[in-house]
Simulated assay, not measured.
Amino acid sequence: MTALSLDRVAVKRDGDVTLALPGPGVTVLLGPNGAGKTELLETIMGLRAPLAGTIRLDGADIDRWPAERRARAGIGWCPEGRRVFPGLTVAENLELVAQAPAWERRRRLAMVLDYFPALRDRQGAVAWTLSGGQQQMLAVGRALMTAPRLLLLDEPSRGLAPVLVAELFAVLRRFADAGLVVLLAEQAVEAALTVADRAAVLERGRLEVIGRPDEIRDHPALARSFLG
């Protein structure tokens, strides 16, 4: 079982986040632009150094690990903005990141296409020709091809129609039910809370509150974070 713990990790001046993800489930980070959501995910991934604090993965201190070592240890990354390789086909985008024998790449590819059947008939299509929703599916699928135990997603709903947001979040719920630890930053509050096990509200890099979705929906910290 994968466990992540953040012990007073600061990603903004005067902020800190103490958070434990003890096992499979969906945890959503809520807050407006500038709250520190992206910074926190990038810090966990090793793309930026924390201002303070300690990050542990399965009990090991990973503060000094570069991003590639964290990826090999099972942290998957799906950044904001999709960032697919536009000149490569869907299949090439997926297989490029899978550092595994051919049989294992085929297994992972079959898994991704099971989660995202809309990509099955587009495997030979160049990525830039996909719709925005299909590109987001491809970005998430590409992260899955690294066989992560912990999946970090930054604003995966951005730019998607509500029906596609609901479909994507339903797939994230399936990930968690299959044993994956999912941590995502979001501004689509209600859609994210519908599939989350826990939610945390960030404000200026500080964790204001964390709890079950039903506890967070009406919490003053959530309204204050978005409405001021």
Rank of each mutant, 00 (worst) to 15 (best):
M1L: 15
A3M: 14
D7P: 08
V11S: 09
R13F: 03
D14H: 13
A20T: 15
P24A: 03
G31F: 01
K37Y: 00
E39L: 09
L40T: 01
T43C: 14
T43H: 05
I44S: 00
A49P: 09
A49C: 07
A49L: 09
P50R: 05
A52P: 06
A52K: 11
G53A: 13
T54Y: 01
I55C: 09
I55E: 08
I55V: 15
I62N: 04
R64Y: 01
W65R: 02
W65V: 04
A67H: 06
A67Q: 11
E68K: 06
R69V: 07
R70G: 06
G74T: 06
G74M: 13
R83P: 06
V84L: 12
V84R: 01
P86A: 07
G87F: 01
G87P: 01
V90F: 12
V90M: 10
L94D: 10
E95H: 07
V97D: 02
A100L: 13
R108N: 07
L113G: 00
L113Y: 01
L119V: 01
D121C: 02
R122A: 11
Q123M: 14
A125V: 14
A125I: 05
V126A: 08
A127G: 03
M137K: 03
V140F: 00
V140H: 00
G141A: 00
L144T: 11
P148L: 08
L150G: 08
L152R: 05
L153D: 08
G159D: 07
G159C: 07
A161K: 05
A161G: 10
P162N: 11
E167S: 05
L168V: 10
A170E: 03
R173Q: 11
D177R: 15
A178Y: 10
L183F: 02
L183K: 09
E186R: 00
V189M: 06
A192I: 05
A196C: 07
R198S: 03
A199V: 09
A200F: 02
A200S: 10
E203S: 14
G205D: 11
R206T: 15
E208G: 13
E208T: 03
D214H: 14
E215Q: 15
I216C: 11
P220K: 10
L222D: 05
L222T: 08
